[in-house]
Design a protein around this nucleic acid. Structure first.
Length: 427
DNA sequence: TCTGGGGTCCTAGGACCC
DNA sequence: TCTGGGGTCCTAGGACCC
């Protein structure tokens, strides 16, 4: 069923999509102003692939998401500045950006670490373009991060507007009028629309639909048949009919994942068990932070997915009573690992997923092991307290092992804003 | 030699029930 | 020849996003 929001709730209003330009790279530049106008890239975990590029790096032909080893020569030849990712730093910058934005509207949806939708309802009396410019200036002034802002009546159109703003118009573009929509959508490639991925693009191209305008003006029922209700919604949004509402409340999570690729391949079950115990520890901390317990856990392992004889397996374990106690979760994860482990493979990655959440204070207690459960919970609270105060893994389960090989991250910047020892010294 | 991590939503198909 | 059928719940897998 296609959800059709009530007219009242979705009356025509202007949305602004604020998106930080080359976010991670821009964060790094704040501390190294000499990198302004220079190519900068930021790498993923393990220095595996490129996850952020400045315009200068894009211009050199470094694609998003490319494996770093594939562009290493290009990077060297052009003096591209390379950073390993530093998520503590980016998270802190993100919070500062969002705080600034929240001063401009009471209705704000934080969509991702570097993007937010703002409702500008009630601000129409002045030019919204001017208002957007003042938002841009405030973020630059307060946080030092450049942003682009797209204005439009729906989220999909605001995304389009934002992409136009990134390329021209001084970082702000208003796509509210029908005339501008006709002009822009006419040249806007269908594959650049938010929600249209590789598979959908292929289907649309086969049908001769190459521009956003062609998709907007296609027969809605036909598009729904081809691209499901998801495609139908995109079409409606392109027409200016809002179908994807602003979500101000952060929704309760449905799953939590902790997974990592290994620096070197792992062969032994015992080593996998250690790694997985660490992932369980991380994700269980987060679960307790949300005051929830989980009723199921999944564990997976995989070999190099780019090789032909790759092996991947995942298994699910259910709990009779919800839990967030690390030892119980580790036991379950290890049981799962034993089920799916096959000897002789070179494992490259493993992960743990927690699912099926209940609030801690609403969980069912089992008649038989409630005492044990209570003891577990008390113990975990103490462990969390100590680790919060003294640093991650001050107290941890023996199952995690003692070696801390850690991921490869050769070019990590200091945690300037979140670790006292890394504060920048002036003078 | 080297290829991220954390999420969401939708659909199809199987199990089960009456 | 032909063997109920409709509803609900759950899960796996696909597609997409940042």
């Amino acid at each position: 069923m296609l959800s059709t929001p009530s007219d009242e709730a979705m009356a025509a209003e202007t949305l602004a999509l604020v998106d930080c330009n080359s976010f991670f790279a821009s964060c790094e530049r704040v501390f190294q102003p000499r990198l302004k106008n220079r190519p900068v890239i930021v790498l993923s975990n393990n220095d595996g692939c490129v996850v952020a590029r400045t315009d200068e790096a894009k211009a050199l032909g470094i694609p998003m998401g490319v494996a770093f080893f594939k562009v290493r020569d290009l990077v060297k030849k052009n003096g591209v500045h390379v950073f390993s990712s530093n998520f503590a730093l980016y998270g802190d910058f993100s919070a500062r950006v969002m705080k600034t934005l929240s001063g401009f509207t009471p209705e704000l949806e934080i969509y991702s670490i570097d993007e937010a939708f703002l409702s500008l309802k009630g601000f129409e009396s002045r030019s919204l373009t001017d208002y957007a410019r003042s938002i841009r200036e405030a973020v630059m002034q307060n946080v030092g991060i450049p942003v682009s802002i797209g204005l439009a009546p729906t989220k999909v159109l605001a995304k389009v507007a934002n992409q136009v703003a990134k390329k021209k118009n001084g970082g702000v573009f208003d796509l509210s009028s029908q005339k501008t929509q006709d002009e822009v959508l006419n040249y806007f490639p269908v594959e650049d629309i938010w929600g249209v991925g590789r598979q959908s693009t292929e289907k649309l191209h086969r049908l001769g639909i190459r521009t956003a305008k062609q998709l907007r003006d296609a027969e809605p029922c036909f598009i729904q048949k081809i691209l499901t209700v998801v495609g139908r919604r995109i079409l409606d949004e392109l027409k200016g009919t809002p179908c994807i509402r602003l979500e101000q409340e952060s929704r309760n999570k449905k799953q939590m994942i902790c997974s990592r690729s290994f620096g070197k391949p792992i062969y032994e079950l015992s080593e996998l068990k250690e790694a997985v115990a660490c992932y369980v520890t991380r994700v269980a901390e987060r679960l307790r932070g949300e005051k929830s317990v989980c009723n199921a856990l999944q564990v997976f392992i995989q070999t190099n997915r780019f090789k032909e004889d790759a092996y991947f397996n995942i298994t699910t374990l259910h709990f009779i009573t919800g839990t967030s106690a690390t030892p119980r979760l580790i036991t379950a994860a290890h049981e799962g690992l034993e089920r799916i482990y096959r000897s002789g493979y070179a494992y490259k990655k493993a992960g743990v997923i927690l699912l099926d959440f209940t609030l801690e204070n609403q969980k069912q207690l089992s008649l038989f092991d409630s005492e044990q459960q209570e003891a577990d919970e008390k113990r975990m609270k103490i462990v969390d307290q100590i680790n919060r105060k003294m640093g991650q893994d001050t107290v941890k389960m023996a199952a995690c092992g003692t070696e801390r090989a850690g991921p490869r991250s050769e070019s990590r910047s200091p945690c300037y804003t979140t670790r006292w020892g890394d504060l920048l010294c002036v003078g």
